[in-house]
Structures are given as structure tokens and as C-alpha cells.
């Protein structure tokens, strides 16, 4: 399994980790477009380098990786963000995914898992860990009960999507889920992707509505 033609940018403020990952990926044939340790230069570099995949750590110290994820995915078409973080799968991972990240992987994942995840992210698949599936499930349920005082109907999961997400959260692979639910492997991937896309769309509409209501210009005051 090689990286073929996928270019990757590594954003992580920890040099040991950053260089280690970059070396692992180079060894496996990926092109490392750039590495950087902070969110501001990440956006600047990504604009020029336009990598296929940005490996993004959320805990960047100075600024939030969530905001960088939002800007990169909105501004640079063709660049996808894969969150590679250690932060015990808390709310910030969910926020990053809502902001546009295509998936999430824990840092303790093996190199093989990482390579596979980057390859899948590059072709537009969603990369889900069990932990992220649990967070997304929880988020849909939260929205169904407390819709953020919006006129906009919160997105809902279909029964099938709920089923698939639950299986992902219990650690089943796409192939195992496909067997269990008697659907194709591709359909499983599509269901997972669709749960993310609905969440991201809703989030973007909400942010736009909020910005208009509060008279904020597009790149003005942060929304929190």
C-alpha cells in the first residue's frame, strides 16, 4: 500500500510527533507538501501548496485547529482535512468535524491505519473512529431535543444511518457492517459520509445565519 500521488501537509505543534509522522509517510510514498506547527501559517501555506490532505492536530496552543479546519475546507477546494488528534475524543473533535473535517483518527493509530485513512480521505471518504461515531450520534440526538433556537429544522438521521453509525461506534469495520446489514460496502461508506455532510451543511447555515443576525462580516469577529 503506497501513497501514490497524494500530497499531505502535517499541522502539529509538537516537533517530535510532526517529524515522526512526516517521515513515516514519506517512507510509504506520500509527498509531504509542508509541515507547520500553528494554525495561522497552516492556512497561509495550504493556500499556496494546496495539498490533497491536511493532517490537523486540534491542540495547537496558539489558535484553534477547529478554526483552521473551517477556513481550509471552505476556502481551498480539493483540500480535505483529516483530524489526527489525541484529545480524548471530546467536543473539539466534534466541532472540527462540523467545521468541515472529513474524518478523525487517534494518534495512537498504527502507521498502516494512518496510511489507509489518508488514502480514503484523499478520495473523499469519511474516516470515522468509533469515538467519533459516538459523538456524532450524540450530536444528532442533542439537536433533536434542543434545536439551537433556530427556525431551521435540525438534520435527522435515517434509521439506516443510525444503524450504521452505531455499528461504527461499536468498532465494526465497513466490511463487517456491510455483511451484518446485508448491504454493499459502498453503501455503508455513503451512509457514513451522508451523516457528516448533513451535519456540516447545518453548521454552515447556522454560522451564516448567526453572522447575518449579528452583523458580522465574513472574516470578521470570531463566532464564539
Amino acid at each position: 500500500m503506497t501513497g501514490s500521488d497524494v500530497s499531505v501537509m502535517v499541522v502539529d505543534d509538537h516537533p517530535i510527533w510532526r517529524d515522526g509522522v512526516a517521515r513515516d509517510l514519506t517512507e510509504r510514498g506520500f509527498r509531504i507538501g509542508a509541515t507547520t506547527g500553528d494554525a495561522v501559517s497552516a492556512l497561509r501555506i495550504a493556500r499556496t501548496v494546496r495539498p490533497d490532505v491536511v493532517l490537523m492536530d486540534l491542540n495547537l496552543g496558539d489558535t484553534s485547529g477547529v478554526e483552521a479546519t473551517r477556513q481550509i475546507t471552505q476556502e481551498i477546494s480539493g483540500t480535505r482535512v483529516l483530524v489526527l488528534s489525541a484529545s480524548g475524543e471530546h467536543g473539539d473533535v466534534l466541532e472540527a468535524v462540523k467545521a468541515g473535517a472529513s474524518g478523525y483518527l487517534v494518534k495512537s493509530a498504527s502507521v498502516e491505519e494512518l496510511v489507509d485513512a489518508i488514502r480514503r480521505t484523499a478520495v473523499g471518504d469519511a474516516v470515522f473512529t468509533a469515538g467519533l461515531a459516538g459523538l456524532v450520534l450524540g450530536e444528532y440526538r442533542r439537536m433533536a431535543v434542543n434545536p439551537d433556537d433556530s427556525e431551521q429544522q435540525p438534520p435527522r438521521l435515517t434509521d439506516r444511518e443510525t444503524d450504521v453509525l452505531r455499528q461504527v461506534a461499536k468498532g465494526l469495520t465497513a466490511r463487517q457492517i456491510a455483511n451484518k446489514l446485508v448491504i454493499s460496502h459502498r453503501t455503508v461508506e455513503n451512509h457514513v459520509q451522508s451523516t457528516l455532510r448533513k451535519l456540516q451543511l447545518h453548521n454552515r447555515v447556522e454560522l451564516a445565519r448567526y453572522a447575518i443576525e449579528h452583523g458580522l462580516d465574513r472574516d470578521g469577529t470570531p463566532e464564539e
Partner: peptide, 16 residues
């Protein structure tokens, strides 16, 4: 439950 998370145990919980 999150405290049980480890290399071999994956814990999935809502953010709330």
C-alpha cells in the same frame, strides 16, 4: 466511562 479509554478499549460517548 471516558476514563476507561485505552489502547485496547475505545470509549464512545456523546459530547454532552
Amino acid at each position: 466511562l471516558r476514563t476507561l479509554d485505552s489502547e485496547r478499549v475505545s470509549v464512545s460517548v456523546p459530547a454532552t
